[in-house]
Write a protein that binds this DNA or RNA. Sequence first.
RNA 1: GCGAGUGUGACUGAGAGGCCAAAAGUGACCGACUCAAGAUCGGUUCUCGCAGGAGUUCGCAGGUUCGAAUCCUGCCACUCGCACCA
Length: 926
Amino acid sequence: MSLPDMRQLEDAALRAWEHAFEPDPASREKFYLTVAYPYPSGAMHVGHGRTYIVPDVIARFWRMRGRQVLYPMAFHVTGAPVIGISRRIARGDEKAIHLYRDLYRVPQETLERFTDPLEIVRHFSEEYRRVMTACGLSIDWRRRFTTVDPQYSKFIEWQWLHLQAGGHVNKGAHPVRFCPQCDNPVGDHDLLEGDKAEILKFTLVMFEWDDALIPTATLRPETIYGVTNLWVNPNVTYVKARVDGVPWVVSREAAEKLALQDHEVTVIAEIPGTSLIDQVVSHPLCGTVPILPATFVDPAMASGVVMSVPAHAPFDYIALRDLQAEGRYLAISPVALIRVPGYGEFPAKDAVERAGIRDQTDPAMEALTQEVYSAEFSSGILFERYGGEPVRQARESVAALMTEKFHSTVMYEFDTRPVVCRCGGQVFVRILHDQWFLQYSDPAWKSQVSDHLAQMSLVPPEVRTEFERTVGWLKDWACTRRVGLGTRLPWDPDWLIEPLSDSTIYMAYYTIAHHLKQYSPEELTPEVFDYLFLKKGSPAHPGKERLDEMRREFEYWYPYDYRFSAKDLISNHLTFQLFHHAAIFSARNMPRGMVVFGMGLLNGAKMSSSKGNVFLLEDAISEFGADTVRMFLVGSAEPWQDFDWRNELVHSTRKQIERFWNMVQESFSAGEDTTDADRWLLSRLQQHIEKTTEALERFQTRQALQEAFYAIDSDLKWYRRRLPAGMQGGSAYRALGQIWARLMAPVIPFTCERLWTDSGGEGLVSFAPWPVADPGKVDPDLEMAEELLLRTLEDIDSIRRVLQITPSSLTLCVAPSWKMAIFSAVATAKDRNTVLREIMKDDQMRKRGKEAMETTKQCITLVHRLPPAFVEQYLNGRVKEMEIFRNARDFLERECAIPVRVVDALESRHPRAATALPLKPAIIIE
RNA sequence: GCGAGUGUGACUGAGAGGCCAAAAGUGACCGACUCAAGAUCGGUUCUCGCAGGAGUUCGCAGGUUCGAAUCCUGCCACUCGCACCA
């Protein structure tokens, strides 16, 4: 017997399942699970496979347990990425074309249509559906939609009107990364370089020079009191520019940047850096100071002019020292203003000298700057004459003072540069106006979410703290975009709703998605959705009865039971959706639980399409078969752990399935006899059923597989060993087949569907009742007897291995009853330290003298070493060693291939017989 | 840097104070079957041991305890997140 052709088996099952998983409300209890829908911009790889297969295993499990299970799927196509992709393909970008043509194997004629972004998502969502089906996912495809379907857009509009009415949407200005060449904001994935760059908020400190202002950009405005000079780079050309009507002197780069940050900028004249040197400037908070030359000043950094605080900034200190070493500017000395524990009067000087810095080009300067800055920030205090505030407060208050009274303003700049757009152009910070924000910072909204979070079931439990932290940390979210696919903001249609924000409550949409498709978008007014989802009002809609029916469907399915997603979405999507649910739905429709996944690796390295390190799910299925892929993905790690796809391991999974197939097929023709081995096998099976069930209830798919497959498999090994000679398998084996096929069905449904049919099972295994453990079939005494045999056999083996003789006979000497008395005295003793004394109080024992003492000591060790349950059970007295070994004599002889005798230790004169202990018979090999 | 999590034998990965030299799977090695290979089945796989035992291991270094892979402290390494993006 061998596994039939995989393809054939899969095709048959797929035909049988075609409309099988399309649940409507029923009288039984429901189980509704959802997974974050995919963004179909590329082919599915095995990592995606797990994301959808694990929930499918759970769905199949609950379905077999009699629940009405809903597992829907849709496609998230809103956003900008596909627009970029299509543009790149249209432009003939080689990297993009290589990825799509060679790695994702998109046919040429399809690829040509990819110049339309919608074609990309259309193509891949179809591919996703095809591959998901091939994986055996029990998805209700009637409910499929995409996020640009007009009906869905109506739903999003409705959602946003509610958010707006609830006061959760606000307008404001917002700094973003911006590419002037593309004339667009850029996200991480649009960047060639600098994707880690953060936007920092600098204060521009305005020094007066003639009729102009010279702005110096700083993160530490409070140090103004210690300024001794400014720095400009003598090799740089500066410009005089009219900024909002006032002449400023800044670097040429800075002038361009300021224009993007809410300023009217007109360049009037160029000023070589050299002609600024030795000029004198002034600021009310520090008086008059000169401008000095320094090559470390970067014109591309903020304003291109730096104020110098040599007492507290290592760069400033060393630049000044370098100049003074040449005998220049000797009159300038550092001015201290902050006291920091661990440093002297001039922390910058201390740090530079401690580190042994030679000059301003030393590479250690960056780290040193960081060190001094953080020391001063965390524990520095300003001198009394400057207000005596801690640095962390003074920073804010001095900045506020300067803004209010001394013309200071804010300038945004990246912390690391350069930042380069995919188009090759330089990226700048730009302030966008009229930006809409979701007010996640709202404390009332936050507390609504955290209250609910406390009641949710989170798997694994460790993620709870991360969720809690995220709720606390979330700030306002810029929720509208200018470019991309998506729904327009209903009250401000120049804006599109941002993609993470339009995918927060669609789990509710699924519940009636297949009905909504039949409505024209115009019919789906906010009043209709209010009625459907919130049970509010009574819209004058024709066909009210249908609406009522849909509302009942929604109420049947909602809230969802579990949402599945990878852990990288905790800090945005998974938390966002809680906010949105809280804002819109009633308390009884709030989400019940979430399961957070780990990430996927391929041969130990992170999977990444752009690096080409992916294994396409479709290839995996055609190479190994869908069940193999499923079983591997489910069994290699628990869902929340990272998993690693390795072809060689997948290969052996395939063999396991073949073995499983053979064993189950064999079981159908097993005999009717019931031996002890059969009773034992059945007894063990009940526990495997129970443990598999518990594991799946807890989403432990790997654990479930351990029990449902490997544990039963290894029981069968022992079972075969224990069967009387010549017997092929008895009644238990026969009974096992159907049960086993059902236990494995959630994981390898294709194989099990066929096995179920072959076993004479009715209907589909996908809907067959999940096995239930029968406590009446559990026989602990029998299990213990087998355990004892196994342990004894191991001891025999271990002895034979070290013995170098060829044995001719084996004698097992069972411990005499007085030793059992000692054993149970030891096992039940409250205090093991005094048990010896207690036992020796007994006259009978005292008569045995040393022997009794020795036995007691050995029993103490033994009791300690045996599993407690094992010991406890032995004490009930139903396990008769002599009987067990005598009954198993044939078996032992077969195993050892020598004659075996079983005697009471008292009957043997062999010196070794005296070593017999309860549960550890003396073994004499001769 | 900050926050969350993880580190177990060749690899994947159980174990959460004495049942632990540590499950299961993989790989490797040895046997059986075979003309042979593959598949399958059985065995071995930290070190030592001519009697079921002993010794050394669970990221590193300390500590608590009669006893630590398991508890505490510090360090190191890895993963994820740190936002306008799916």
